[in-house]
């Protein structure tokens, strides 16, 4: 009995701060958000709309829009392509960078890590500004001017307006760079947790970097891989800030630069009114997709097997 009590105190010591935070700022707001999706809440006017119940109106309005908006098909297609390709770039790009910097000297390695972390460090607006000028479709664009100097092209290419792949490439590139740093840092720290003896022993046995990566390093950071993959998937599904300004500034084509999350954001918040009811309904829809996707990834990657029972517990 006493042992059990002690375990309970220990557990509550470890878990209660998280529990409080999650309940207070996640579960409670989440329930409120679901509730708000059934109200006419807008413009933050809680006192006026909190009790103005509209049933499924917001859901209905969204689904109706999905069916009738002439640009919605493009948005849907963009979402699938964007999430799919960016996810691959994020996870494998991050892994490649982590492994590559693992095998080189510390000085260049840390310089590269810093460089690749810049996108995540920059204020979103400034980051967007960098790529806005870089990919600008006229001769003021950096890429165009380089290619023209090199004599590869004679006329500037309106990258973001070539649909769909030009616009897709830009939004994938811009978001991919931000996401890669996440994988990179997680994998780098995970790789550094691996006992050096293993690597050195393999080297002595004459293994190449590639063999070391495949046989030793990657299997040891499986948990982190699973985690980054699932996490980034969910992030990409709901992300829009790095797309918002690119579309707003007309760098990329509006239809093929808009994902579902941005579409919803623009409808709910973009135009004069702040429609929190609609946003909440969209969030519920988006998270249903996300949750299903999340479970599928966990199943495919055999999450169960990785959740080993802690050894030697009391």
């Amino acid at each position: 009995m006493n042992v059990k009590r002690e375990k309970l105190t220990t557990l509550s010591f470890f878990l209660s701060p998280m529990a409080v935070m999650v309940v207070l700022f996640y579960l409670v707001p989440l329930i409120m958000t679901v509730y708000i999706s059934f109200t006419r809440m807008r413009n933050w006017n809680v006192s006026k709309y909190l009790t103005e119940f509209v049933g499924f109106y917001n859901y209905h309005r969204l689904l109706y829009m999905f069916q009738h908006d002439p640009t919605f098909k493009a948005v849907l297609l963009t979402t699938v392509v964007f999430v799919g390709i960016t996810l691959i770039i994020n996870v494998f790009g991050g892994l490649a960078l982590a492994l590559a910097t693992f095998f080189i000297e510390d000085k260049p390695a840390s310089a590269f890590r810093l460089l690749w972390l810049l996108p995540r460090m920059s204020p979103i607006a400034v980051y967007s500004l960098v790529w806005y000028y870089f990919f600008h479709g006229s001769e003021i664009g950096t890429l165009n001017s380089i290619l023209m100097k090199l004599g590869v092209i004679s006329q500037p290419i309106p990258w973001g307006q070539i649909v769909p792949w030009g616009a897709w490439s830009i939004i994938i590139f811009v978001n991919g760079l931000v996401g890669v740093s996440f994988g990179m840092i997680v994998f780098t720290s995970a790789l550094n947790q691996i006992p050096k003896e293993l690597v050195i022993a393999a080297r002595v046995d004459g293994a190449s970097s590639w063999q070391i990566s495949r046989r030793i390093l990657i299997p040891m950071i499986r948990w982190h891989l699973l985690y980054v993959l699932t996490w980034q998937f969910l992030s990409l599904l709901t992300t829009y800030p790095h797309l918002f300004l690119l579309v707003q500034w007309d760098l990329v084509n509006g239809d093929y630069g808009t994902t579902l999350a941005l579409y919803v954001f623009n409808t709910a918040f973009g135009m004069g009114e702040q429609d929190q009811g609609l946003a909440a309904a969209a969030a519920v829809l988006l998270s249903v997709i996300g949750i299903i996707g999340g479970f599928v990834t966990l199943k495919v990657l055999k999450f169960e097997r990785m959740m080993k029972r802690p050894r030697g517990d009391f």
């Binding site: 999650v22 409670v28 707001p29 989440l30 958000t33 809680v46 599904l237 829009y240 946003a279 996300g290």
Partner: peptide, 28 residues
């Protein structure tokens, strides 16, 4: 334990921009 891990992951599926409505209510 396992469920807690999954719950944490699923929570992330809820975009912050939508969550903010509830967080705002609490703030209010």
């Amino acid at each position: 334990r396992k469920h807690m891990m999954i719950l944490l992951l699923v929570l992330h599926a809820f975009p912050g921009v939508a969550l903010i409505v509830g967080v705002y209510l609490l703030y209010r």
